[in-house]
Computed example of a mutant assay.
Amino acid sequence: MQESSVSLNEIIAHSSRARTIMSGKVNDIRSVTSMLRMLALNALIEARRAGDMGAGFGVVADEVKAISGRVEVLSRDLAVELLGEINALETLTQAMAQASQGDRLTDLAHNAIELIDRNLYERTCDVRWWATDSAFVDAAQSHDKSACRHASKRLGVILDAYTVYLDLWLCDLDGHVIANGRPSTYDVAGRSVANAPWFQKSRNLATGNDFAVDDVTANPWLGGAQVATYATGVRENGDADGKLLGVLGIHFDWAPQALAITQGARLSADDRKRSRVMLTDARGRIIADCHGKASLNETLNLKTEGRDHGHYTDHDGTVTAFHRTPGYETYKGLGWYGVIVQKPA
């Protein structure tokens, strides 16, 4: 795409030079014809002074005058027609350059949403795997204090290895947190998450192969940090079809991971200054942006017109490119979009 953009810019530069050359040459022609007409006028004056002896010279002067007039008309027509063609060429190449840039931005928006999809697919794998850990099964089944302390230690070990999580919560079926991986940082034991969407969805999952996910939220019990929470049921014997004993919720440290992806878009230094790379959820909420200003309270009204991907240009020249989540493996995505909004140069 970059090579195409450079080629179009060269065409625009050449057409601009052609406009300059044409204007200069037409002015030269008009200057010459003006001199010819003046010369013809002077010749006619002299012919009349010469009387009958200058009659033949007068005929030649009339022809020179007529020819200069025709050249003037031709130069004017040339200027009008050629200028019209150059204008059309410049408009066309600018439109092609804009479309080329829009296609490139759409590809980058696709890349951003695809990267987050792959990342979140791994989160679904994590929660379904960890929920089968015998320590969590025992704690969810017995509610024994010793078993819950052991479960907390196991959760802590996982957190030491997986730094993309803020905390992991093991909950009973009533929604009370009975163990978490960072109890010294987040005092959540005994708190109720019964009303949390991720907990309620997990209570209704058919098997341990299924998972639930909540919208990106700022969790007050995690210091107000923005998290994407994935959850699944903890089942008897760790079997996928075992009796439901509890729920494991894992809180993905959303903001820094999403910021790294939006800032990683392959934009030139000039494009980067004029662009805002974002991720939006299915409701249009901006859940990540390359400037680190995603408050979760701002909404973007995308003009998708039913398309999964594409771009459009506003009246002020701002280009908006978007691509809907394609999903990855068993993770079908949540209707999110990768978006790039770029101001004109």
Rank of each mutant, 00 (worst) to 15 (best):
S16P: 04
D271G: 11
T217Q: 13
A135G: 12
Q263K: 14
K65I: 02
V177E: 01
H176S: 05
W221Q: 06
L159W: 10
D241L: 01
V247F: 13
A79V: 00
R49Q: 09
A260K: 14
M22I: 03
T229Y: 05
G223R: 07
A321S: 09
Y331G: 06
Y165H: 11
D210W: 11
H323L: 00
M278V: 08
D172S: 07
I340V: 09
L170F: 15
A288Q: 03
W169Y: 14
E46W: 12
A139Q: 10
D316A: 10
I45M: 07
R324F: 09
T20K: 04
L159A: 06
V6K: 06
R48T: 11
A240D: 02
L245D: 01
R154Y: 07
G317P: 00
C171Q: 14
A43Y: 05
L222N: 10
V247I: 15
A50K: 10
R17S: 13
L36I: 10
I11D: 06
D62Q: 08
S5L: 05
T313C: 03
W336K: 09
T185W: 05
S23T: 05
L166T: 11
A55M: 09
H143W: 01
D133P: 00
L296C: 13
R37K: 14
A179W: 06
V247H: 13
Y312H: 02
S100H: 03
A258I: 02
L302N: 02
N301H: 09
K145W: 11
M38H: 05
V234M: 07
D214E: 12
S146I: 11
I287R: 11
A282C: 05
Q2N: 13
L36A: 15
D174C: 00
S34N: 13
G233S: 15
N301M: 02
T132P: 00
R128A: 11
V216N: 04
I29T: 05
T217I: 15
D144H: 09
D239R: 08
N297R: 14
L205R: 15
E63N: 10
P220I: 10
N9W: 04
W130L: 10
L245S: 04
S16L: 08
